[in-house]
Design a protein around this nucleic acid. Structure first.
Ligand SMILES: [Mn+2]
Ligand SMILES: [Mn+2]
Ligand SMILES: [Zn+2]
Ligand SMILES: [Zn+2]
Lengths: 140, 140
DNA sequence: CTGCGAATCTGCACACTTTGAAGATTGGCA
DNA sequence: TGCCAATCTTCAAAGTGTGCAGATTCGCAG
């Protein structure tokens, strides 16, 4: 996802309005590495802008995802998560505390895969589940 | 997942009761390759047993999943899907009609992965998205 | 073959996430 | 400055899944 300044330019270029709500979300998402849910962003946003609505958070995040500025991820944690990192990468989820980290995988072209016959695959995602370092330490 | 007869035995052995509802679901799931949702199974079950409740379908499927007789899958299609195939395998989902097929992947030990440091990974799932043969044909 | 009691089933309420729709507000331009 | 389409807020509702209470029934003891 581009910087708040660049996004502001891009929005203007597309004839979209620059509202304080959008600018706030640009800032909150830029460089955000914690893969927040809309609800989590709403909480944070509400501190800086009391009265902002959850609906607007959803709307803006979905718009940004449609524009390709961020990815929306269903990692099986109940709510969709939003990721400004649009690199080709994957994720690992802690089954205990839901912490999420980026995972980079290479060499996947060496996999031998059967069952995709006839399918036009447009996306491949690898999801790792387990316990994060903290939760591993606690539970032993 | 084992056969309805074997499951009946296993249930008895665990002190669980054999009810017509459970037996019906044993039959509906055995060898079922379409990865149905609880709601879909409820529809089918209702034809053969009018009055069966959706709650019981959920309950029974979850019990079977807990026993390891079937896997519950979140493939991002909105509702959890149930799979009597407990082999180590993955899935491809058609983004247009939601058809799901099994995918077998080997050679994943040759992948080079970074970002899992400290995580105790207990499960890895690969999800392919795209268009099934039928939907590919239609949309061209 | 009964009858009992614990397990199960049903029906309903509710939590949670996300979206639809209508009316109020406002950014951007004339 | 004023207009108006775009945006925001608010509220209702769809869709999935679970908790709970009371009705039913399976499995066994007598
Ligand atoms: Mn990420
Ligand atoms: Mn499968
Ligand atoms: Zn953790
Ligand atoms: Zn299809």
């Amino acid at each position: 996802m581009r910087s708040p300044a660049e996004l502001t330019e891009a929005f203007r270029a597309h004839g979209l309005k620059i509202t304080p709500q959008r600018q706030l979300l640009f800032r909150l998402m830029h460089g955000n590495e914690c893969h927040p849910t809309a609800e989590a962003l709403f909480q944070t946003a509400s501190e800086q802008m009391p009265g902002i609505s959850l609906r607007t958070v959803y709307q803006t995040l979905n718009d940004l995802a449609t524009m390709g500025e961020l990815r929306s991820l269903d990692l099986g944690t109940g709510a969709v998560r939003f990721d400004p990192n649009t690199d080709d990468h994957h994720h690992v989820v802690c089954d205990h505390c839901n912490e999420i980290r980026d995972v980079y995988v290479s060499g996947s072209d060496a996999l031998s895969i059967s069952g995709l016959d006839g399918f036009a695959v447009s996306n491949t995602s690898i999801l790792f589940n387990g316990l994060c370092p903290r939760c591993t330490a606690v539970s032993e």
